[in-house]
């Protein structure tokens, strides 16, 4: 930096490390709770250091029947449901946004701006504010307890369409002209030029949308009444309710750990894409 002051450098690192410790504390406590046996987890004060039952709890949670005394689907099944929902939402959103952005930028057709505004409106209507009527529509269409019902209503996305529109607008017109001179039609141009040029944007968007899809809560909570269709994120709530009678915090916290692990791994390993996706979709 500008000047060299030792005490300020030390202060900087101390503040940052304390900050990280505060941010990490809930996860640390979860990890510790997931590594003790059920008996230890009923005695106050609870431990602050990990115990030796981590793998035991891990296999019991992942492949066992989960929490005893509850009717919850096995954890591996719920992880698969979450994965299916997250992938369908992420891929679906990217697919339908990129083609509609392509149409809006590269074609001039009647009602073009009308469609643009129609898509824009979805930005203003999060699921939370229109849950009851949306639930009725999905129920009428017979989509309860299905992957389609889980993901399709969440697939429309104004932000992704905007982002692709922004990307396409920065692509020089000369590319289109020369492609046309060479006799490429619109679909050929889309596949061979636009998609490869927006590859990093697609990847960045995928990271953000995967997390968004995985972490969905209210919507799956409403439309999955069949236990075999529940996602891992919803199961935590059911377990918390069950915990009021039979506290098995080691299993609950292990499930919580398994539920947050996939998105955390995605964020940490694809940090650059994640940061890019976050800053670009908000523009």
């Amino acid at each position: 930096m500008v000047e060299n002051r030792r005490w300020i450098d030390i202060l900087t690192h101390v503040v940052l490390i304390v900050g990280i410790a505060i941010v990490a504390l809930p996860i640390w406590i979860t990890f510790v709770a997931a590594s003790h046996d059920a008996v230890r987890m009923t005695q106050a004060p609870l431990p602050l250091l990990p115990g030796g039952h981590f793998w035991e709890n891990f296999t019991a949670t992942l492949f066992g029947s989960g929490l005893s005394g509850t009717e919850i689907a096995p954890v591996w099944r719920m992880l698969l449901n979450s994965l299916a929902m997250a992938l369908m939402i992420a891929v679906g959103k990217i697919a339908i946004s990129i083609i509609s952005a392509f149409a809006i930028v590269y074609f001039r057709f009647p009602f073009r701006m009308g469609f643009f505004w129609l898509i824009f409106i979805t930005l203003m209507l999060p699921v939370e504010v229109r849950i009851l009527p949306t639930f009725e529509v999905v129920a009428d269409l017979g989509m309860l307890n299905s992957y389609v019902g889980l993901s399709l209503p969440l697939i429309a996305s104004a932000t992704a369409t905007f982002m692709f529109r922004q990307v396409f607008l920065t692509i020089p017109d000369e590319l289109l002209e020369s492609a046309r001179v060479d006799g490429a039609g619109p679909l050929r141009f889309f596949w061979d030029i636009l998609v490869p040029l927006s590859r990093t944007n697609i990847a960045a968007l995928f990271v953000i949308l995967f997390i968004y899809g995985w972490n969905q809560y209210l919507w799956p909570l409403l439309i999955t009444t069949d236990t075999s269709m529940t996602t891992i994120v919803i199961s935590i709530k059911q377990m918390l309710e069950a915990a009021e009678q039979t506290p098995q915090w080691n299993i609950i916290m292990m499930t919580a750990l398994l539920a947050m692990l996939p998105p955390i791994v995605v964020v940490i390993t694809m940090q650059k894409l994640f940061v890019k996706g976050l800053t670009e979709t908000e523009k």
């Binding site: 941010v23 996860i27 709770a33 972490n215 709530k237 916290m253």
Partner: peptide, 22 residues
Amino acid sequence: RTLLIWPYAVAPVLAGALWVFM
């Protein structure tokens, strides 16, 4: 940054579960 960004990936209901447990 790497050490600070990951709570973003935790679902709200899980964040709730963690804090209610603590």
